[in-house]
Structures are given as C-alpha cells and as structure tokens.
Write a protein that binds this DNA or RNA. Structure first.
Length: 501
RNA sequence: GGCGAGUUGGCGGAGUGGUUACGCAGCGGAUUGCAAAUCCGUGUACAGGAGUUCGAAUCUCCUACUCGCCUCCA
C-alpha cells in the first residue's frame, strides 16, 4: 500500500500518515462562510484538499474515506450583508433575507467548485443545522470550568487550559496579550478569551439557550460538527494557514477540553495564501477576484485548477494570465495526445508517488509531462483524470466541434455527441471544398482563394488547420463556439461555394 | 514589537550531501505555400557572507530582502 507522508503543522514535520481506522479515514476541512461568491483564495483549499481526498480514496478505497467540509451560514458578516440588502430596499425581515442569501451563495459555491473539478465532500453540514450540538458542547465546557457566562455571552477561558492553548500556532498567551492591538471587552477574564455564544438582537438570527436567545461564536461550529460527524478523534484537519490562529487554535481548545478522551485532529494541514502582485488576496484588502470572474473571462475551470496544482500547497501562489495561458496550452497538448485513446485502469505510480510525498502536485505534473508521449498516452490520460483535470472526451472546452477530412475521402468527426448534425454536414462539406481549393492552389501555386476562404471561416469562428496523414493533405475545421443561425447559413453557403474554374 | 514561512536559470517550478529535473520562453534544425501541430538538438541557476565536509542548492551561523499571522479572512 502506498505510504502517504504529510507535513503536520502541529509538529512542523513531515509524518507518515497512520489512520486511526484505515477502513474509515476521516478528514475535516474548513469551508466557506456563505455571504459572497468564492474568490480564488477561497478556492485554493478546495482544490488542495480535493487532491488529498482523491489520493486517500485511491489508497484506502473510495468507500473508506469520510470528508467533511462545513458551510458556515451563521455569522456576523452574513448579518451585515443582509442588513445592507435591507437598507438597499429589500423589504423582508432580516432572517428571510439571510436564508435567501445563504441558500443562493451555497448554490454559487457548489457550481463554482464543480467547475474546478472538485468532488463533493462526503458531508457538507450547515452550521444552523447543528445549533443544539453547539449548545451542548458549550454547556459541557461551562460545566468543566473551561467556559463562563458574562453579560449574555459565554466565553472560553484560556487560563483553564494553559498547557494546551497556543501549541498549534506556537504562541504564548503572554506574548499575544502584550502585542494585542484590539480593544478588549471588559467582561473577559483574560484578554485572549474568545466568544462561544453571544446574544442576538430581536431581528437577528437567534436560538434559545441557557444563556438567553443568541447565536454561536465563530469557532464553535467546526468543533461541534466535526465531533458530530467524525467523532472526538479523527485523522486530518485542513484549512488556510490564516486560520491557524485564532480559528484552529480555538477549535482545538474547545474540542480538546470538551472531549479530553479524544485527540481531536491528529494531522493539521495548512495551505498557503493566493497572492496578487505579491500581496495576499483578501476581501479586506479588496484585491480579490472570484472564480466566477475567471470563468466568465473564458478560463476553463480546469485551467484554473492546473495553475493551482503547479504550486505546492505550502507555498504562496500567484495567479497570472501568462501562467494560465501556459496551463491551457499544456492541457491542449495532452488532450490532443489522449483523444480517442483509452485511459489506463490506474494512474501512473509516479503521479501517486509524488502526491503521496506531502501532496507534491508540481512534481506530479512533471510526471505527467514525462508521460506525454504517444507510447504512454493511456497512462497520461488516467493520471490527468486522477488529478481532477478533464480528459479529451469529457472536457467541455477542448474537444470543440470539429471535423477532419483527408484527400482520400476519410472523414472524421470529433465530439459527435455535442455536435448538431447539420453543423457536422456543413463543416464536412466545407472541408471537402477546402481540400478541392487547396489541391487546385497547389497546382497553380496561387493560394489567394484558399487564404480568402480561411479568413471567411475564421470570421465565423471556425479555425482551419492543415496537416498530413500518410503524406496526403488533411484539413481540420474547428468550430470554437456554437454558431449562430446566420453563421450556420453562411457556412453552408461556403460549403456549396462557387464552381472551380 | 512578538511568532512563523520563504529567497533555485528569462519565467514557472522539482530537488535535503556526490550523476540532465521538468515545463514554458529563447536559439538552431526537420517538416511546411502561409499558419498550426509535431519531431530533433541546445545554453543559462541555486540571495549574500562565513563555517562543517573529501565534497553543499541541500547541514550550521550571520546578513539582506520578501511574505504571512498577531483584527474579519481560505
């Protein structure tokens, strides 16, 4: 069995993964707060941990991995956004707006992440479906002396767990208190104490609790939901490195104090940030663009995924159009090579080996380059698919409708399932006419008419490529987009053409 | 101020003590009406300094620079 090695942020070392139960490898990854479309930075952990999910399924079996990624649908940012919508003229009450906003955002999230080739996790719990579990966990923490109620809030007392608090992020409570730049609420016993539960105003989302009507603090949902779905000990916890403190530190404090019999998460993985011009992409800096922005600009989702995989997850990643263009060309080359070739039953051992070594995706892509030969196209195809990139037959951007025609009369249509029959016929006839013109032009050494036809086809969105097969000319016409009614008529006109002199 | 990560050729990016990474771009060539695609060949690197070692991109120390967290964040 392949041995997976991962860099555990908790120990700052690479460690061999030894699942608690190989028949049920359990992973939790922090998901989005759903109030806005996912930007590229939000997408990185989705892609990174999707690769890990695929690797775990490969090694331990598809039915032996449980992957949980939460949807945080209760949060002050959501409330703020909903209020803004209200002030902008939405007459409904706040809770109704919030429900619509979160539902819609979850829909966007799923659609956008699907474009990136990410599999759906095993479970995607919504925080609002786990309020009772959160309340129960908080009650337990209060009972054990790890939390206290104050002015309608419940706070975690970091002084009750000084032995463990700060271990993950390598911080001392004293240092953080000394360096704090934020005003401290007067009811906190220690400035580092954080909110487990807070009171809600009458119009805000709220649930009844022993401390009055309120809502959970930021960190508790991950502790409650990971416990509910994965138990008090599980294998892997992932998220962006900016979550290491305070979010993950606080999760650990809550979970370990509520369930001291368990280990909580054994291996912690943190992906580095996406950068723009050398600076972290973030909403507060305003230098972000969404996945949807890139898709709308015409970048296929798998090109975005490829660019992400080109950078190791523990290094900052830059999005540049130059890199995206290279990725697109590389994928095109691989698709050309694998089109119509059956995929091998298993991905290449080199690819698996690279991924098993702390998710070395750049090395995995390098292994793919090595496989990019006609002799190894079957392995290439299986490996490309394993990484969550498309393959020629299923990718919706590469095998654009196109036909090829040789002078021998051999006639080939690619992607027939997606190509309307009349367009096939029009392209085929045009290809035949092109070959006639071409043969005539070669004989006369005058390519004027051929070039004119190429130009007209290009204006219809149809690219012309001439190659040779067995020494004979072969023309390939590729429609880069769906043709409008008018363009289709013009194409048929080209097919009929004027008579050759 | 505290803590942490990083600095590899024109660009991207592997590589943790000793043999070409790889890709893109460039250059030369084959093929080619043009173009595309394909094929062959090819140069350039380890931030700076000191140390350990027979030998360092790889280990140690120092310096410089970049970035992140400490406030919502993926």
């Amino acid at each position: 069995m392949t041995q997976i090695t991962l860099h555990n942020s908790r120990t700052r070392r690479k460690e061999a993964l030894a699942p608690i139960d190989p028949a049920d490898v359990r992973m939790y990854v922090c998901g989005p707060t759903v109030y806005d479309r996912a930007h590229l930075g939000n997408a990185r952990p989705v892609v990174v941990f999707d690769v890990l999910f695929r690797l775990l399924r490969h090694v331990y079996g598809a039915g032996h991995v449980t992957y949980v990624r939460n949807l945080t649908d209760v949060d002050d940012k959501i409330n703020a956004r909903a209020r803004a919508l209200q002030e902008g003229g939405d007459g409904r009450d706040l809770n109704a707006i919030i429900r619509t906003l979160t539902d819609e955002t979850i829909g966007f999230y799923h659609a956008d992440m699907k474009e990136l080739g990410a599999l759906r996790p095993t479970h995607e719990p919504r925080a609002t479906d786990y309020i009772p579990q959160m309340v129960a966990m908080i009650e337990g923490l209060v009972a054990k002396g790890h939390a206290y109620a104050a002015e309608g809030h419940v706070l975690f007392a970091v002084d009750s767990w000084r032995a463990g608090y700060g271990k993950l992020s390598g911080r001392a409570v004293e240092d953080m208190v000394a360096g704090a730049r934020v005003e401290v609420a007067p009811y906190k016993r220690n400035p580092m104490d954080f909110v487990l539960w807070k009171p809600s105003g009458p119009d805000e989302p709220g649930w009844d609790s022993p401390w009055g009507r309120g809502r959970p603090g930021w960190h508790i949902e991950c502790s409650a939901m990971s416990h509910a779905l994965l138990g008090e000990s599980f294998d892997i916890h992932g998220g962006g490195i900016d979550l290491m403190f305070p979010h993950h530190e606080n999760e650990i404090a809550q979970s370990c104090c509520a369930h001291p019999e368990g280990d909580f998460a054994r291996v912690w993985l943190h992906n580095e940030m996406v950068q723009v011009d050398g600076k972290k992409m973030s909403k507060s800096l305003g230098n972000f663009f969404t996945v949807r922005d890139l898709l709308d600009q015409g970048w296929p989702g798998e090109v975005i995924r490829f660019v992400m995989l080109q950078t190791h997850y523990r290094k900052p990643m830059d999005w540049t159009e130059a890199e995206a263009e290279r990725a697109r060309k590389t994928l095109e080359g691989w698709y050309r090579l694998t089109e119509g070739v059956p995929a091998a039953s298993l991905p290449s051992p080199q690819v698996i080996g690279a991924l098993a070594e702390d998710l070395n995706t750049p090395a995995a892509l390098a292994a793919l380059h090595d496989l990019a030969t006609p002799e190894t196209a079957e392995a290439l195809k299986a490996s490309v698919a394993f990484l969550g990139l498309g393959c020629a037959e299923t990718s919706d951007w590469y095998p654009r409708p196109r036909v090829s025609l040789e002078t021998s009369g051999h006639y080939g249509v690619r992607a027939p399932g997606t190509l309307p029959e009349d367009l096939v016929n029009a392209l085929g006839s045009t290809a035949a006419r092109f070959l006639d013109l071409y043969a005539d032009a070669k004989a006369k050494k005058d390519f004027t008419r051929v070039d004119a036809l190429k130009a007209r086809l290009k204006s219809l969105g149809v690219e012309t490529a001439i190659s040779r097969r067995d020494g004979k000319p072969c023309v390939e016409l590729t429609a880069h987009r769906a043709l409008s009614e008018g363009e289709a008529v013009q194409l048929r006109h080209e097919a009929e053409g004027e008579a050759l002199k």
